[in-house]
Design a protein around this nucleic acid. Sequence first.
DNA 1: ATATAAATGATAATATTTTTCATTTACAAC
DNA 2: GTTGTAAATGAAAAATATTATCATTTATAT
Lengths: 144, 144
Amino acid sequence: MRLTERKIAATLRQHGYKLTPQRRSVIRTIASSQDHLTPAAIYQKVHQDQPSIGLVTIYRTLDILAKLELICELHAGGSCHSYTIGARGHHHHLICSNCGEVIDFAGYDLTQLEQRLSRQTGFEIEGHLLEFIGLCQNCQQEDD
Amino acid sequence: MRLTERKIAATLRQHGYKLTPQRRSVIRTIASSQDHLTPAAIYQKVHQDQPSIGLVTIYRTLDILAKLELICELHAGGSCHSYTIGARGHHHHLICSNCGEVIDFAGYDLTQLEQRLSRQTGFEIEGHLLEFIGLCQNCQQEDD
DNA sequence: ATATAAATGATAATATTTTTCATTTACAAC
DNA sequence: GTTGTAAATGAAAAATATTATCATTTATAT
Ligand SMILES: [Mn+2]
Ligand SMILES: [Mn+2]
Ligand SMILES: [Zn+2]
Ligand SMILES: [Zn+2]
């Protein structure tokens, strides 16, 4: 269930953040949108409500909200520019958060889930993104 | 199985792209790395081999390689700046590639797969990213 | 060897994100 | 309500990242 404006405001304050009109407006904008929004898009919308707001404040607010997990960051097919070598056939990736090592793995099938989602939502599903993040063995040892 | 330099070169030519020393070097760099690399990182490495190469050529080559699916683009925890409202509990996202609508869904458990991967690779898994991309009902109709 | 379209690199333009710092403001304490 | 204070804001600049333009070079087919 999606978080409400109220809940988000409360959590912010619980963590010692001040509840400014700018932050309220950013929260309201995101909470009332069905889409995912970039900082620039949020700025545009918030600007109507708070004409004097600066784009920096958007960035700063988003950082806080994301850190507290009050908003979700999406990849959404957008282009991250980090690449690894391709492989034959469909596969997914396991990535070390410390050294960046990438392991390909295959044999995990998401078509059942895809069908369930398609049935439940009416979406025509085009693809998916599945990545795991963790620490490789080397990097675990270094942590000692 | 990871694609080889040879295979990639062949595919490029099959698609009518010329096989320049610059492109060879970019391919070799990516193919011989265990990590995922940004354009800047690739540039640094390739530059040692091809001191006169420009960063633009890296970008252009990556675009081609990605389009032909000879390399994989990773999100890798990197920060895409597109956000949607948070939700209670762990969940994943289904996103319309046309209008950006985001649907949350829960109840799909990846811990079994996580455990399998952990056992097989020795990784200590910290998290994952699962997103589906598709067309929502509205956007399907507009396509007619 | 030659012709030619494709690719490259220098440069500039654009877009995105972060830093810095003086001013303003939310909020707690009185 | 007033006041004090640390936190937040916005303007501006700086730093990064990406894309566009165009004259020159080059891979490849002939
Ligand atoms: Mn891969
Ligand atoms: Mn969500
Ligand atoms: Zn590692
Ligand atoms: Zn849609």
